[in-house]
Design a protein around this nucleic acid. Structure first.
Length: 568
RNA sequence: CGGGAUGUGGCGCAGUUUGGCUAGCGCACCUGCUUUGGGAGCAGGGGGUCGGGAGUUCAAAUCUCCCCAUCCCGACCA
């Protein structure tokens, strides 16, 4: 393409409200424009990158036997009501009504829809199947942010596997893990797999692919010594046992005027590790007490996973007062029998604990959690933090901020049962199929590549996803220079290179700066000075290296270099 | 949903405190001349419902009220 005919609206300054590097650079470089919060137009440059990312994903899915579909993105409510997610998806799902007053939804994912199609499967002989699509998803995010990293409308590759048994699912899951690893390699993303929460719909193994990046939204706990890595929503760590000393015979109520915090109570003589922190949560409308050690923090996703809660929020002070008779700071679960109590495993077996007495300015000490508190459920609720000991090897854990670039998990047979996806097995018995679900956000990956491939001059796309692989920068539009440039242009195009010819009537500095901003991997500078020696100049965006090439050898040299990098 | 901030031409901003002439600056854009290997110079020019609505006033970008939009932080830390 000739730059003079292209719409590449680069900006001298990035919009002031673009904070994430990818956001600022994609707007500044003329790749995207915002329509409104969470919805972006992809301009020609952006669309080319998007399509390249998409094609890499498509190739790798086809490689493992995936069959591409395209399912509707507008769905009747009934399908979602059938799976129960009409309710459980809550406000994240866009809903609308048609002229006949039918309820509809815009797809946030497509388990239900693929399951309705899969209902036609009838024999184990048809299995396994691997189906996927690259389709727009809609999610009414509470807070869209950071350009393409978190949006309300985005393309996602979602695939679903159908097997006769868990062994088959395990194989497809493993196949996906390998395919995803390939995809991220080709995108140039330093993604690594971590254990993750699979969310409310259950499922067994859940693996997220994470890319370290400050603009991300997930905290990942990683071990620098072994291969342990987990989302903080799932991570566990070794815990040293605490010596509680001889247990007290009975809890003792004692006055604690003005004491409202763990720290204040610690100053009054109760170590935080010997306190029980009582959090009043409202889980699907039900007041529930969540107990963790005084120096620990509750992870709400763990609470949700442990209890199957759909909607969780902390109780208001008023609710707390009503149900427990005291305000935060003096709360406890001793003697509470009318509310569900869920306690963190770190509290199991502990004695001589201190906790609130449900009367302002009073606490209990000498509490034996097994004896004095009616714990209805024990679960891993606490959030692991950096410095704790790895569950596997004991090394000090690190925490890393990451972008979730992909997610694979084992669904099991839940949807198959609901939607009647059953097949006859070898014995003629009807069995629900076993499903897996696998997702990669296209736009998010594009943004993540931008996050990890840029410098002070702009973007530095890997060849695999660059909007153009090479740009010919023509420094003077006279006939001699142009004809040399055209010759290169034709040669590179004939050699299968995505090449951009910068034939704009602009100053050299502008052309160099724009080429660097939009991140074209290879720049061929054609100007009278070089041509006098029969040479052009090749500049590599990623490292700034440059060398002169003879006009004759340039096409081959550049085409070969690009071909070598194209597969990522 | 809670908190904070911001809305003035395509982008970046000033002007708002203390109401007052025709709403300004830089970049970008158009025309001409000069220039031309790292974001040119000079001259001329075009483009604005000052987020929207209502109000106060002789007079509103500026004051009051309501609404909207966008960005950032938070939405367990008892």
């Amino acid at each position: 393409m000739r730059w003079s005919n292209l719409f590449i609206p680069t900006l001298r300054d990035a919009p002031a409200d673009a904070e994430a590097a990818s956001h600022a650079l994609l707007v500044k470089g003329g790749f995207i424009r915002q329509l409104h919060s969470g919805h972006y137009s992809l301009l020609p440059l952006g669309w080319r990158v998007h399509q390249k990312v998409e094609n890499i994903v498509r190739e790798e899915m086809d490689n493992i036997g995936g069959q591409e579909f395209l399912l509707p993105t507008m769905h009747p409510a009934g399908v979602w009501k059938r799976s129960g997610r009409w309710e459980t998806m809550g406000e994240i799902m866009f809903r609308l009504t048609d002229r006949r007053h039918n309820e509809l939804a815009l797809g946030i994912t497509h388990e239900e829809i693929f399951a309705t199609v899969a209902a036609e499967l009838s024999s184990y002989k048809e299995l396994p199947q691997l189906w996927y699509q690259i389709q727009t998803k809609f999610r009414d995010e509470a807070r869209p942010k950071s350009g393409l990293l978190r949006v309300r409308e985005f393309a996602m590759k979602d695939s679903y596997s159908f097997d006769i048994d868990w062994d088959g699912l395990d194989k497809q899951f493993e196949t996906h893990r390998v395919a995803y690893t390939r995809i991220f390699e080709r995108l140039g993303l330093p993604a690594f797999p971590v254990e993750a929460s699979s969310g409310a719909m259950g499922g067994k193994d859940s693996v997220e692919f994470m890319v370290p990046c400050p603009a991300g939204e997930d905290d990942v706990i990683i071990c620098p010594n072994c291969d342990y890595a987990a989302n903080v929503e799932k991570a566990t760590a070794r815990l040293e046992s605490v010596d509680d000393g001889p247990p007290a015979d009975t809890p003792e109520r004692f006055p604690t005027p003005g004491i409202r915090t763990i720290a204040a109570l610690e100053e009054a003589g109760a170590p935080a590790a010997s306190q029980i922190k009582t959090m009043v949560m409202v889980a699907d409308g039900r007041i529930t007490l969540a107990l963790v050690r005084g120096d620990h923090q509750l992870n709400t996703q763990k609470f949700i996973d442990a209890t199957g809660t759909i909607e969780l929020r902390p109780a208001t002070p008023e609710e707390t007062q009503t149900h427990l008779g005291a305000l935060p700071g003096s709360l406890g679960a001793v003697g509470v029998i009318d509310l569900p109590v869920i306690a963190d495993e770190a509290l199991r077996g502990r004695t001589n604990m201190t906790t609130g007495a449900n009367e302002d300015d009073w606490h209990y000490r000498g509490v034996d959690i097994g004896r004095d508190i009616a714990v209805g459920q024990w679960a891993d609720l606490r959030e692991v933090s950096a410095g704790e000991a790895c569950i596997n090897c004991g090394a000090a854990l690190d925490t890393v901020r990451c972008v979730e670039a992909g997610h694979i998990f084992k669904l099991g047979s839940g949807y198959a049962e609901t939607f009647g996806v059953t097949v006859s097995d070898a014995d003629g018995v009807q069995r629900p199929v076993v499903m897996g679900s696998y997702g990669i956000g296209i736009g998010r990956n594009m943004a993540t590549v931008a996050e990890t491939h840029h410098d002070e001059k702009g973007l530095c796309w890997p060849v695999s996803v660059a909007p153009y692989e090479a740009v010919i920068t023509v420094l003077k539009l006279d006939e001699a220079t142009m004809s040399a440039a055209e010759e290169l242009y034709d040669g590179l195009r004939a050699g299968g290179v995505d090449v951009l010819l910068d034939d704009r009537d602009a100053r050299a500095g502008v052309k160099f700066a724009d080429a660097e901003l939009i991140g074209i991997p290879y720049r061929l500078t054609v100007g009278p000075k070089g041509l006098a020696d029969g040479e052009i100049e090749l500049t590599v965006r990623a490292n700034g290296g440059n060398k002169r090439l003879s006009l004759e050898s340039a096409v081959e040299t550049v085409a070969d270099a690009i071909a070598a990098e194209r597969r990522g």
